[in-house]
Simulated assay, not measured.
Amino acid sequence: MKRAPNINLLPDIPEDVRAAVLDVTTRLKDLPGALLPVLHAVQKALGYVPEISVPLIARELNLSRADVHGVISFYHFFRSKAPGRRVIYVCRAESCQAMGAVKLEKHIKQRLGVDFHETTADGAYSLEPVYCLGNCACSPAIMVDDELKGRLTPERFDAWLAAENG
């Protein structure tokens, strides 16, 4: 007699991903509206929310996979692929735009050869938009990982990039 497939089986998940997700969900699943805090904590732990982790997160929070996937895909902050070794956030708020961020953004995209939400071919840099870094007095601004940089011009970006790769 043929058995029906077990729909509760989870895909093979690397042990580091499984451990991180289970640690986070165990700590946070009882919070009201736990999904967002869980996704933030998983991304903080792993650098991204791996697609393969969605079924495990859904199971641990008693949600559907569609619920979890929908939140990850709706909020641009969440990544489903590993980021580059450095993440460059370009401020797109009004103050930065008024001070040259559009020109800077185009320059950075051209220099790195990527668009927003992409990673350079060598895995060195990921480029992400952000809608305010709180550095309006020093517009235009970017943040590299956790380091804020203000009054940035295409030339200053190039100098930083050269020093970074020097």
Rank of each mutant, 00 (worst) to 15 (best):
E155P: 01
D16V: 01
L133P: 12
G113S: 12
G70P: 10
I72W: 08
T25D: 03
H40M: 09
K103Q: 12
F78I: 03
K29C: 15
A45G: 11
R156I: 09
K103W: 09
A162D: 14
H69C: 03
S80L: 05
K106M: 02
V68S: 07
A66E: 02
A20W: 00
H40T: 00
A58N: 06
L148G: 05
D146N: 15
Q97K: 13
L46P: 07
E147D: 10
P14K: 06
S64V: 07
Y89A: 06
S126N: 12
Q110N: 10
T153G: 12
V130K: 14
V38D: 08
C132A: 10
L35D: 08
N6K: 03
T153R: 12
S64N: 07
R59K: 15
S80T: 11
F77C: 04
R65P: 11
L133M: 10
I72L: 13
D158F: 05
L127F: 01
T119E: 07
A98D: 15
M143K: 14
A41I: 03
D115S: 15
G123Q: 09
T26A: 06
R79V: 00
E118V: 05
W160G: 01
E94L: 15
C136E: 06
P140K: 11
V130D: 13
N8W: 06
F78V: 03
Q97W: 09
Y75H: 03
L148D: 10
R86D: 14
P129G: 09
A124T: 10
K106I: 03
D146I: 11
M99G: 13
P50E: 01
S95P: 04
Q110P: 02
S80C: 02
C91P: 01
N135C: 07
L56E: 13
E60D: 11
L127N: 09
K106H: 07
S53V: 02
F77H: 12
V24T: 09
K106Y: 01
G47C: 07
L39T: 05
I142G: 12
A121Q: 12
L31F: 00
R79Y: 04
C91T: 01
A20D: 00
K149Q: 13
G100P: 12
T25Y: 01
K103H: 11
S64C: 04
Y89L: 09
M1S: 10
N6A: 08
A4H: 03
L35R: 08
Y125I: 01
A163M: 11
G134M: 08
D30P: 00
L9T: 06
E147Q: 10
A82S: 15
R86F: 13
G166H: 09
F116I: 00
P55Q: 08
K106T: 03
L104A: 13
L46T: 04
L127E: 05
V102R: 08
A20C: 02
V144P: 03
I57H: 12
L28Y: 01
S80A: 07
I142K: 14
I57N: 03
S126P: 08
V102Q: 06
D67A: 14
H107D: 08
R111G: 02
P37A: 02
L22C: 11
G100R: 04
V49M: 11
T26M: 03
E128V: 09
T153A: 09
V87Q: 15
V130H: 12
L9I: 00
L31N: 06
N6V: 01
L104H: 07
F74E: 11
